[in-house]
Simulated assay, not measured.
Amino acid sequence: MIQVRYSSPPSSAETATTADLRDAFLVDDLFVAGEVRGTYTHDERMVIGGAVPGTGQLDLPAWTDVLGADSHLARRELGVINVGAAGHVVVDGEKFELDHLDGLYVGRGSEVSFTGADAAFYFVSAPAHATYPTRALSHAEVEPVALGSAQAANERSLFRYVWGQEIETSVLQFGVTVIADGSVWNTFPPHLHERRTEVYCYVDLAEDDRVFHLMGRPGETRHLVLRNREAVISPPWSIHSGAGTGSYAFIWAMAGENNTYTDLVPVAVDDL
């Protein structure tokens, strides 16, 4: 199953009800046992998806009626991160084992399937103009960048898996940010990047915990309340920041016309 979301102007968020915001920007039904589910957003033509294989094997769907091709990656590249227990992603017959929060970049033109009784795979695809090699990305082997501070309640570790350096892609970037115990804020103070869309998927939350995700133009912010394994689409005009009621991590993925990781515009707290 795949949904389609159309692009929204910033003014639509400023006058929207909570239900309107959730319908337009929240992706809350990706992880269903025995299924592959996806959402296609016209923002950068990204596909956000989840695959929960259970005891079987699931193929990455072509979703031909939406993507217009006989294979999902005929004109796309893919990023995968396992948010469950250990499992495997099979790319053109080659098996890659992914433990919790391990990632995988898959280049254009490949065929992909998922296995693992207790695995749950989050994936994002975006249009690609060229083909680059498949790369396994071990969470344990990525050197994190320390950000924030305990005093500001925003201490966190940024794990850059694919970020415009070391691994070449067409447009896709993705990684994981882990919030330190005792901290709550992510991406704060926030920022904007006009030439890219970003998607956050919040993971590793306890059952009763939530993340209050801030979105919108500076000075006109709104918020969404997210559970574990729910995602939110952040268009180029929107900040993307949030605070959790307990420990959590989030997967960030970006696509657009600019793949320079540091191409962003900081937003001062006074401007919110």
Rank of each mutant, 00 (worst) to 15 (best):
G182R: 02
L101K: 04
V199F: 04
V211M: 01
P133Y: 01
M254P: 08
N259D: 15
S238K: 00
G54Q: 03
R156E: 00
T221S: 08
L58F: 14
G34V: 01
T64N: 14
Y161E: 06
A16F: 05
D92V: 01
E44H: 05
H240E: 02
F114K: 08
T177L: 13
V47W: 10
V178T: 15
N82F: 12
R227A: 06
Y132C: 05
G93T: 01
Y261G: 01
G56Y: 05
G219K: 01
A51P: 02
V142A: 05
Y161G: 11
L226E: 00
D204E: 06
D65F: 13
G56I: 06
D99K: 11
D70H: 09
S157G: 06
T260G: 15
V184I: 15
Q165P: 12
V265S: 14
P127E: 06
V52F: 07
P144E: 11
L272E: 04
V225M: 07
A153R: 08
Y105H: 10
V83C: 10
Q57N: 10
R156G: 00
S170R: 07
A128H: 03
V232I: 15
P218S: 05
G148M: 00
V89G: 04
G175E: 06
T245L: 03
A153N: 04
S113M: 06
